[in-house]
């Protein structure tokens, strides 16, 4: 990833990648939000931001590069989209496919950074992308998982916010990466998470 990536409009190829990931989880897509990118197209990883249109105009129109605009939604690395927690925020209330609804025990365990076992799944909606939005019984998004053998491997979950999200490691906008990654989440120390 470049050291000084600039916030910009996404290329058509990037938008297509993001759109297909979004459509795996929501037939309505991203409603009322712009998608911006940071990082040189085709080189390394590109950061994807979901931004209210008023804020994207602000972020792109100013002379000064922002540290952050909107919500960090995903990364594109090697032509593949890695969804982050911000994408779940953007899709809140509109996830109607590509999801797992899990029971309370699986919810608690998942928010500790663990995988979802088949017995914790109440309902599954197929995902052509291979990634699943993990939802609780209220259909509130808990994180992302990917099928690995019999289990659904935790890619990232809302528990990272406490486990590692406020340590302040990391770099400016275009360089926001590791904190949101699955690796960070799975390495982090569990917290007490009630059901």
């Amino acid at each position: 990833m470049p050291d000084k990536a600039v916030l910009r409009r996404c290329t058509r190829e990037e938008l297509d990648l993001i759109r297909s990931e979004v459509l795996c989880h929501s037939s309505g897509g991203l409603v009322g939000l712009d998608v911006l990118c940071a990082g040189a197209p085709g080189s390394g990883c590109v950061e994807v931001l979901a931004v209210h249109p008023s804020a994207s105009a602000e972020a792109l129109g100013g002379g000064r590069p922002p540290f952050l605009a909107g919500v960090h939604a995903a990364r594109i690395c090697g032509g593949r989209v890695e969804p982050l927690m911000g994408l779940l925020s953007a899709l809140w209330g509109s996830i109607d496919r590509g999801y797992l609804i899990v029971d309370e025990r699986a919810e608690a365990v998942f928010l500790y950074g663990r995988d979802v076992l088949p017995r914790g799944v109440i309902r599954r909606s197929p995902s052509p992308c291979g990634t699943y939005a993990v939802l609780n019984r209220r259909r509130e998004p808990l994180g992302w998982a990917r099928r690995r053998g019999r289990v659904y491997a935790n890619l990232v979950d809302a528990g990272w916010y406490l486990r590692s999200g406020l340590r302040g490691r990391g770099r400016p906008l275009c360089l926001i990466t590791a904190q949101d990654s699955a690796n960070t989440a799975s390495r982090a120390r569990p917290i007490h998470a009630p059901t």
Binding site: P66, L68, G70, V71, G86, S89
Partner: peptide, 13 residues
């Protein structure tokens, strides 16, 4: 911002 779903913030260092 991500956790709370605040999409209209532009932050400058």
């Amino acid at each position: 911002a991500s956790r709370l779903g605040a999409f209209n913030i532009v932050a400058y260092l």
